[in-house]
């Protein structure tokens, strides 16, 4: 679809729209522990009853902002030592924004228990604890596609003792210090007041028939409030001890990869373990960093941005303090004000031949009506890292189709005032 010139993409934008039927990708290493990734709202997803919301971009973007607020509050509360900040801010958010996890659009299916039961989980590099709704839903459960996991039907399910080191460590991490009798409880609250509370437990996790993990720690949710999506929970991929990455360290040595499909009508994959055989020469590696304010997230050392092959005038310090993370659950990249303004201005300068139209609000403020153009040429965007590695974004990663071709927007947003 792209006739790439040196510094631009020339694209028939209609080719980037999702089709009405699913076209599974044939790529990906099928020999590895590989799970198929689908877009929650696309035709490849079996979450059929939720497809009706596929074009509700307003809700998707609002949920995305809630997630970003949640990430920032997790980090900011560590900065000022105010552990109650996220909770106090959460009360100001409208309930219709639903869950911060709702913005995480990519879903995989795993098996849990003995016999194993399939569960569709949002995979999330910004969460550490895997959780799923559990029978008997002592508090409440929201509707989900698959049957809700029933621990009493699993012969390998075990509750974690309150006095175990694992429970103590979880309680320390989550600041939730409760048990019922001798059973450890977990609680996770997100930035919009959605929450899950339940039993901290272990059971057998099945990724593929050859990738089965006994005694996998997870949250068995008995009260799950504020979630509106049809998935069964979260697959936590962040850097905490209880994430799937740490729990499978002996087999995969903390190596995982994913590919998010270019459109919602194709599929991607989530794989665990290093690639087999010769290394892929096309892979560009850059340094994985840790934020000084939070070790849970995956940090990257962004130093600059190129547009149209030209380096934007942005001080590297803009990206380094408090830092930059890579997140599978945030939809639209967020940039500090200085960086966003430089990027937006350069993009607009390259797009003067197309009619600029109003965006939905200040969130996406650079949108074009491209409905009368068979092809569109827009600038390439590259991220430059501190170690000199340059990453060129795919053509699909630059624009966001807010309203078909009538509102095609630059898919970046400016961070709120850091002091707000």
């Amino acid at each position: 679809f792209a006739l790439a010139e040196a510094d631009t993409h020339t694209v028939d934008l209609r080719s980037l729209f999702p089709a009405t039927t699913c076209s599974p990708s044939t790529k990906g290493n099928k020999r590895k522990a590989s799970l198929e990734v689908v877009h929650k709202h696309g035709p490849c997803s079996h979450l059929a009853q939720h497809k009706a919301t596929a074009t509700n971009h307003t809700q998707i973007l609002e949920q995305d902002q809630v997630r970003v607020n949640s990430i920032n509050s997790q980090i900011f509360k560590k900065l000022n030592g105010n552990e109650d900040l996220s909770q106090s801010k959460a009360t100001t958010l409208p309930a219709r924004w639903a869950t911060s996890q709702g913005a995480s659009n990519y879903v995989v299916t795993v098996g849990l228990g003995t016999p194993n039961k399939p569960l569709s989980l949002v995979f999330d590099t910004g969460s550490y604890l895997t959780w799923t709704q559990c029978q008997p839903c002592a508090g409440s459960c929201y509707p989900q596609k698959e049957p809700i996991f029933d621990p009493s039907a699993s012969t390998s399910y075990t509750n974690i003792s309150c006095n175990s080191t694992d429970c103590i460590q979880l309680r320390t991490t989550t600041k939730f210090n409760r048990c019922v009798a001798d059973t450890c409880l977990y609680a996770l609250e997100y930035g919009d007041s959605s929450y899950t509370i339940g039993l901290f437990a272990t059971d057998k996790l099945t990724l593929t028939p050859n990738d089965v993990f006994d005694g996998f720690f997870f949250g068995c949710g008995q009260k799950n409030e504020g979630f509106i999506n049809g998935t069964a929970g979260i697959l936590g991929l962040s850097r905490n001890k209880f994430s799937i990455i740490e729990q499978t360290i002996q087999k995969y040595n903390r190596f995982f990869s994913y590919c998010l499909p270019p459109t919602a009508s194709s599929t991607g994959y989530l794989s665990f373990g290093a690639p087999d055989g010769a290394s892929n020469a096309a892979v560009k590696y850059t340094r994985l960093t840790t934020l000084s304010l939070s070790s849970d997230f995956y940090g990257i050392d962004v130093a600059g941005i190129n547009v149209n092959g030209k380096k934007l005038s942005i001080p590297a310090s803009v990206f380094s303090s408090p830092g930059t993370i890579i997140d599978s659950g945030t939809v639209i990249s967020r940039l500090p004000s200085t960086a966003y303004t430089a990027l937006r201005d350069a993009f607009r300068a390259a797009m003067t031949s197309y009619p600029l139209v109003p965006g939905p609000d200040e969130f996406l403020d650079t949108c074009y009506d491209l409905s009368s153009y068979p092809t569109v040429t827009y600038p390439k965007i590259e991220f430059v890292f501190g170690d000199g590695v340059t990453l060129e974004l795919d053509a699909t990663g630059i624009v966001y189709f807010l309203n078909g071709l009538k509102q095609v927007c630059l898919a970046f947003a400016e961070n709120d005032d850091a002091n707000d």
Binding site: S257, C259, L260, A282, K284, T286, F383, A411
Partner: peptide, 30 residues
């Protein structure tokens, strides 16, 4: 904080070598 979101990660393989302290990107990965 700046966030590199999932729209910008589309259609590329993203590899997390956490033990090796590096993250990789391969274009056209899907």
């Amino acid at each position: 904080i700046a966030i590199f979101g999932n729209t910008q990660q589309k259609n590329m393989e993203v590899l997390y070598d956490v033990a090796g302290g590096r993250v990789g990107f391969a274009p056209g990965g899907c």
